[in-house]
């Protein structure tokens, strides 16, 4: 049992990421605000649709239009239309304290049960005058904070933000496993031990499996966020598919040799060469060819940016470690199967 601690750890982390990743709710968020184009000098009843929030008449609800860090406009009255629907009455002045004319302002909702939440850049206001003197400021007041563990609410992503814990770790695990397989390929070329070749075979099989799972989870994600299963304008998606083609070709190459030693040697050489060719494919080209919809490309935030907040990190990093360990475990199991096949074949001869 002590010897197998890493398998227990891997399975535990994957299980943890599945349970926590799927069960923790999203933070409350604003789905849409209408109307979103406002004219200064008029009064509006803004209809606000929210997600994962429960409003009731018992708690007072604050709604602000946030102008900048110091200035905000508070709603005159807030009505609860439904459990997730609000109506906020605003008198929009015809003068604003700074010159961001027609700029999209953020909307902030604050109450006791749901905490405070914000929808950035959701309302545009057209006004005539910049005047700091007569501007009546209602700064954003004391905000409620909820202690519950929640994942961030992001428009476009919504609930699919959880896919971060499954889609991204697949690629991490695939890369690590391919690198380990290259290490064993080099070892084979030095030692010429047929069992080492079996290790390479099992590792590459698991790597391809993880790659396919990464591609499938990515395709599902693309369907719900970009509206398509597959797009050729997305460089990372296509480069990943090509990386998998390289490894599928590896298996074709393996199968085209009858002689065991020749097969092991030539496929080891190809594995090292292909892995080196894959480095520009996965890590250089997507950074140079900038037309990508992925986070981290073309100005989108990525891991380490604001997309991965602390609660997400608590699930994401364990998931990465868990899938790497699971991949290695799977490879050792496959290796044992191949080894038995190999020994049986040896005994027959």
């Amino acid at each position: 049992m002590i010897k197998h601690w890493w398998k227990v750890l891997g399975a535990g982390l994957v299980l943890y990421s599945l349970i926590v990743g799927l069960s923790v709710p999203l933070k409350s968020g604003v789905l849409d605000v209408s109307p979103s184009m406002l004219q200064g000098g008029k009064s509006y009843d803004l209809i606000i649709n929210t997600y994962n929030a429960t409003f009731s008449d018992e708690n007072p609800i604050d709604v602000w239009i946030k102008v900048d860090d110091d200035n905000a406009l508070a709603a005159r009255a807030v009505k609860v239309l439904g459990e997730t629907k609000l109506s906020a009455h605003f008198d929009i002045p015809n003068y604003f304290p700074n010159e961001k004319e027609n700029w999209a302002y953020s909307i902030i909702i604050n109450d006791k049960t749901n905490g405070a939440f914000i929808r950035p850049r959701s309302i545009a206001v057209k006004f005539d005058q910049i005047n700091k003197e007569i501007w009546k400021n209602n700064p954003v007041g004391s905000l409620y904070k909820i202690d519950k563990m929640t994942f961030p609410f992001r428009s476009v992503l919504y609930e699919t933000i959880r896919n971060t814990y499954y889609h991204v770790p697949m690629w991490f695990a695939m890369t690590i496993i391919f690198l380990v397989s290259v290490f064993y390929s080099i070892k084979y070329l030095r030692k010429k031990d047929p069992l080492v070749d079996l290790k390479v075979r099992s590792l590459t099989t698991v790597g391809v499996l993880l790659g396919f799972m990464g591609l499938i989870t990515g395709s599902l994600w693309a369907r719900s966020t970009w509206g398509t299963w597959w797009t050729f304008s997305e460089i990372k998606m296509n480069m990943a598919a090509i990386a998998l083609l390289i490894y599928l070709a590896y298996f074709v190459l393996r199968n085209s040799f009858d002689d065991e030693e020749k097969r092991a040697k030539i496929s080891a050489v190809y594995n090292v060469f292909a892995c080196m060719a894959m480095i520009p494919l996965l890590f250089v080209i997507p950074r140079v060819v900038t037309s990508s919809l992925h986070p981290g490309n073309g100005g989108n935030p990525a891991i380490g940016g604001e997309d991965l907040d602390n609660t997400m990190r608590m699930v994401f990093y364990p998931a990465v470690i868990g899938w790497i360990l699971m991949g290695i475990w799977l490879a050792t199991l496959l290796y044992r199967v191949y080894k038995i096949e190999y020994k049986l074949l040896d005994d027959d001869v």
């Binding site: 480069m239 090509i242 990386a243 083609l245 390289i246 070709a249 074709v252 190459l253 085209s256 040799f257 020749k262 030539i266 050489v269 190809y270 060469f273 292909a274 060719a277 520009p280 494919l281 250089v284 080209i285 140079v288 060819v289």
Partner: peptide, 27 residues
Amino acid sequence: AIASKSNNSATLMAILGFPVVIPILLM
């Protein structure tokens, strides 16, 4: 050099070579 070791080298040449050459082609 790799494909020549096998019997069906013409097929192998395409399936081994094209994915590997794509980074160069794109650049």
